[in-house]
Design a protein around this nucleic acid. Structure first.
Lengths: 233, 233
DNA sequence: CAGTATAAATGAGTCAAGCTCAATAACGGA
DNA sequence: TCCGTTATTGAGCTTGACTCATTTATACTG
């Protein structure tokens, strides 16, 4: 009857319970959304009294925080791991894009709960979610910085602009994808989608060839002329 | 004491009340977010009993729906109006981008409430929000389709991919902008931000053709110089 | 100008769900 | 086996969305 690794020590039992609660929460949150999820149901699913949950988590929000944290941990780890085996910035970005989109689609309900919650949280609480995100996008940022150093990526755009372009288009694409009633596991269609997005993004961020410098020069010349006119004014 | 246009007929009074409630709701939702807003407070601010609100709106969600609807109506109207006075796809897209970002920043709290609520709603309820969005992005879609017909925009990318790229990057940029503690009314900084994003997006969607993008850049540079000279005159 | 039917407004009361806490149970070392 | 500590419980408290019986305002009519 006992599972092979039944918790023996007090500490082990406590940790197992915490995990059980998080697992139950993930389930119920996923099924009903944040507001729709009842602590009672989470407690029942975790085979625990309602009050017990509040020994492990300060409140419902903290419970969500734990669920989201676990998700981001998985996400960040697999992203990092995948990038390491690849050479070339474009390759790496394409992997990150595909990986992000597939992960977001399969755990879409978690993403949807995270987005748009910041506002109702205190400065301190929301900083927790931001931290998760920061750690995750650090993987992207590194890829991008390396690409810049290798001369593959333009250096004249702030990195956060590129990041918003990248993840913004991907996440919106996820939403569109779901709203259109697509299956979250049609890998071929997803790959096609990502490919199109990345083609566009790459055009915008890749360091242009020889003739491209013309473009940059014209831009800087224009700025100088405008500045000159401003001085006249 | 009476306002110049005090409502006289029954119908007028009812409509004035509905508007008062929506205005109060917009205020309170904006200050405290959806969950944080109390119907009691909205009622007090609208100078109405709590029960009265439920004569006008089925529930709290319907109240939010009305507030968001009013926002989208303003947004769509001003977007449409602004586009009409402009020639050239790039010009129009740049206007739409700036307009979107400025609007979203000034009414950021409304945006944040809308995003991420879909999940907790019934199919029917969420379709209301989708409809708002559909009407709004129709303006963008038209600009893009015209651009395709004029040969300025690539035709080999589905329009929804471009839309996600466009609004995804803009909205994420809004969030970044707010999180970095920028003022929502620093128009110069916003314009710079939008400019960088649009440069990237344009690279991705412009029809490559015979140096067409260079041509377009030269065209826009010329316009800027002309504008500067015009100021001198 | 009453008189009345109908529409509109009210707020005390209900209900549901997050959260608290005094009482209880389980544990493990002596 | 006893006892101090830790963990658990669930009945009740609180808050806030929502309801509904009652009251008030309005427009219509003879």
């Amino acid at each position: 009857m006992n599972s092979p690794t039944e918790p023996r020590t007090r500490r082990e039992r406590v940790e197992a319970r915490e995990e059980a609660i998080i697992a139950a929460a993930q389930q119920v949150f996923g099924d009903h959304g944040f507001d729709g999820a009842r602590i009672t149901d989470i407690a029942r699913l975790a085979e625990v009294a309602e009050g017990t949950i509040y020994l492990y988590f300060k409140n419902k929000e903290a419970l969500l925080h734990a669920v989201v944290g676990a998700f981001y941990q998985r996400l960040t780890a697999s992203a990092q791991e995948g990038v390491q085996g690849l050479a070339g910035t474009r390759r790496q970005l394409e992997f990150l894009a595909r990986h992000h989109m597939i992960s977001c689609l399969t755990e879409w309900h978690i993403i949807e709960m995270t987005v748009g919650r910041y506002r109702q949280l205190s400065e301190y609480e929301s900083s927790g979610y931001l931290q998760f995100n920061k750690t995750y996008v650090a993987v992207f940022d590194n890829v991008l910085r390396e690409g810049m150093n290798r001369g593959e990526i333009r250096k004249d755009i702030p990195i956060w602009n590129i990041r918003d372009l990248f993840y913004g288009s991907l996440d919106y694409s996820c939403r569109t994808y779901m709203l259109r009633g697509h299956a979250p596991d049609d890998l071929v269609e997803i790959a096609r989608n990502v490919q199109r997005l990345m083609n566009m993004v790459w055009q915008g961020i890749a360091r242009p060839g020889e003739e491209g410098s013309d473009h940059a020069d014209l831009e800087s010349i224009t700025r100088r002329l405008e500045a000159a006119v401003a001085r006249l004014e």
